[in-house]
């Protein structure tokens, strides 16, 4: 399996005034194309920070992050925004749908940045909503949907542009057990059936167990697969 994501000696230090807080130190990680990786760790271990760096919504203090052959740490903000729109699909803990837009319109949002025609956008949105099983609720507003349904709309929004990687930050963190199961089943399907590379962050062992690969972070260090600090 070819590596889609290559992280080399990445460090991240947050600076506020004169206080420096190291969050990640010398992280090395490779994620293959079609991988389903779960990152686990306690609060403050740096897992969300690492996820943000892979997604290109934050920049490392040092090291290289190469995704699909592009060193995203070197891209400008505008280039990074463009890169994200075509390569990354985001799934957040609190769904983050726009409340004044219907499910259809929420899923359509990333496509507004493309050159697709209205008809082509419609086809993509309907296909994405079909995959997540919510085609019949495309005209519902977020407040008319359950938490699990909202998250499925968010997943449809994440996959509608057919991105290289799906980034999921605690995707089941706000859901009940049954809804969480449904979401993880859907994500497994996206990985196995649609060959999506998924990087997921969770503190829930059961959720993490649905991934193909599990890595632990602790105090900014990535532990090897056997649980020993690298």
């Amino acid at each position: 399996m070819a590596n889609l994501i290559e992280i080399k000696e990445v460090s991240k230090i947050y600076r506020r005034d004169s206080i420096e807080t190291p969050v990640l130190t010398g992280i090395n990680l490779s994620v293959g194309n079609g991988e389903f990786l779960a990152l686990m760790g306690p609060s403050g271990s740096g897992k969300t920070t690492l996820l943000n760096l892979i997604a290109g919504i934050d920049k490392p203090t040092g090291g290289e992050i190469i995704v699909g052959g592009t060193d995203i740490a070197r891209l400008s903000e505008s280039a990074l925004a463009k890169w994200r729109s075509s390569n990354i699909g985001f799934i957040f803990q609190f769904y983050n749908l726009i409340p004044v837009l219907t499910a259809y319109e929420n899923v359509e949002l990333p496509l507004l940045l493309t050159k697709l025609s209205k008809q082509e956008r419609k086809q993509h949105v309907e296909a994405a909503l079909n995959i997540v099983g919510l085609a019949e609720r495309m005209n519902y507003y977020p407040k008319q949907l359950s938490g699990g349904q909202e998250q499925r709309v968010a997943i449809a929004r994440a996959i509608v542009t057919d991105p290289l990687i799906l980034i999921a930050d605690e995707p089941t963190g706000d859901l009940d057990k049954n809804s969480a199961e449904e979401i993880m089943t859907l994500m497994q399907r996206l990985n196995s059936e649609f060959k999506k590379t998924i990087v997921l962050v969770t503190h829930d062992a059961h959720t993490a167990s649905r991934a193909k690969t599990l890595r632990h972070l602790e105090k900014g260090d990535l532990l090897p697969a056997d649980g020993q600090a690298a």
Binding site: A81, K82, R84, F90, L109, L113, R157
Partner: peptide
């Protein structure tokens, strides 16, 4: 919401 829009590629 603005952060989410920026994350999904809105400039």
């Amino acid at each position: 919401e603005y952060a989410v829009l920026k994350a999904i590629g809105f400039s």
